[in-house]
Design a protein around this nucleic acid. Structure first.
Lengths: 248, 248
DNA sequence: TGTACATCAGTGAACGCGCGTTCACTGATGTAC
DNA sequence: TGTACATCAGTGAACGCGCGTTCACTGATGTAC
């Protein structure tokens, strides 16, 4: 057992795995489709298709890995944006987070489609594997929301939740005990609505469902819409006025 | 020329075309995929695949037709909902419209994916053919928005549009001269934001991106979210309070 | 009312293609003594 | 330091499958005189 924890062979093996995923991502981007073609990947790598089976048991396994990594990539980008942003009493950090989300989606439309678009036909991602990475972005943004609340930047709206919704959000809150952020249902309601708007603008833009003239000013439209969404959530005007929108 | 405008043969031909589309829709729904398999359609109809070419020149032609009809189906459903709703000084009609939109999406997830989801790989719908039907739902909802404004149910928010956005929306308004509804940029901004929220909630629900516990109360969440979105648009509280949500 | 012809619906076989996956194999890379 | 063996990477051929589309064809349905 004097051999190093990771042998040269293992390192090469690992490197090839990474290359396979990179090539797969690249092909998806170049072909403009969120599907995965094993033979094309092998071709691109100068390999026989069968050689891929040294590294993955099946096509599905590669897909699953790509999905996990896509979630992780957005998640990390958003986390970094939040970390780099000033954690002051403004909405700057939140804006930085969502703008980064948007940028990633526009820069990686196929990967975005893979995780947030129409489900890939004939394939269901194993929930136990993809759940955690899928939550990463949400957790990051939620964290900033919590900070904003605790800093007093937000006045929760007093419109009462309908009963059925309140219990549903209560359940969401309970489910989330594991994620260790103990939020009241009202906050969850806000978070979900904010999420839905975010999701809506980005989907509309990535999938081309915005009016054409808007596409020249889509960053501004996004910023404008997110600021309005925050205002609805009860973010104070000063916090919004003081917030700097990232220029990207 | 004493033959009737439409002969029996032509009627049968037309009926078969309709059957092909119906079977294609049915298969999409049953297979749970927004793609189209010619051989499967032929199989289902008890025909040879080649026979389909008597009715359509290619697979793409069928897809295009399905897309147009899907747009038309939602459009018509929304129009009817608006027509059936009371055109009073409440948001009832608008709520009826968007609830109908949601219902249609949930009832026809594959058709919804076909027109509003990730674009089908390797296929681009011919814009000149699909544009008009694609606008139908938007035009219907926009009409109700215009009515609401003219009835004084809405106070347009006074937050100024950033310059770049204003010119972009001005362009949208100009483009729209053909559609014969002459709206100021500010209204277009509202409409787009409303659309984006609508789009976001429905996408999230259809594609399964809402927290699980919410799925039991998703109609309420939808209603709640749309009402909030309307409030942001400046719809008066009385109009919202007086509005009856459809029970579906 | 009957016959000759044109039109159309649908068949069946085939083409060419590309896919994911398997399997027995050849060499190269590493390991043990 | 050298030899014998095990492990692994990658090959090449093949399997079975299904797809969209073509083409020459057979019958049935309609039309003209």
């Amino acid at each position: 057992m004097s051999s190093p924890a990771v042998t040269r062979r293992q390192r090469q093996h690992f490197a090839t795995i990474e290359e396979i995923k990179a090539v797969a991502r690249d092909l998806m981007a170049r072909e403009g489709t969120a599907s995965l073609n094993l033979r094309a990947v092998a071709r691109q790598m100068g390999m026989t298709p069968s050689a891929l089976y040294r590294y993955f048991p099946s096509r599905e396994a590669i897909l699953t890995e790509l999905i996990k990594e896509a979630y992780d990539a957005v998640g990390e980008a958003v986390e970094q944006a939040l970390d780099a942003a000033p954690r002051d009493r403004s909405a700057s950090a939140m804006l930085a987070g969502v703008h980064t989300f948007r940028r990633w989606a526009l820069d990686h439309p196929q990967e975005y489609a893979l995780i947030y678009g129409t489900p890939v036909p004939g394939y269901e991602a194993p929930a136990d594997e993809t759940f955690a990475p899928a939550m990463r972005t949400n957790v990051a943004l939620l964290g900033e929301l919590v900070r904003a609340i605790s800093e007093g930047m937000i006045t929760l709206p007093d419109t009462p939740l309908p009963d059925s919704l309140r219990t549903a959000f209560q359940e969401v809150a309970d489910d989330d005990g594991k994620a260790a952020m103990d939020l009241p249902p009202g906050v969850w309601a806000l978070a979900c609505q904010f999420w839905v708007v975010l999701f809506g603008v980005i989907n509309a833009e990535v999938f081309g469902h915005l009016p054409h003239p808007l596409q020249g000013a889509s960053a501004e439209f996004f910023d404008f819409t997110m600021r309005r969404a925050m205002a609805v959530m009860g973010v104070h005007e000063e916090a919004l006025a003081a917030a700097v929108s990232p220029t990207s």
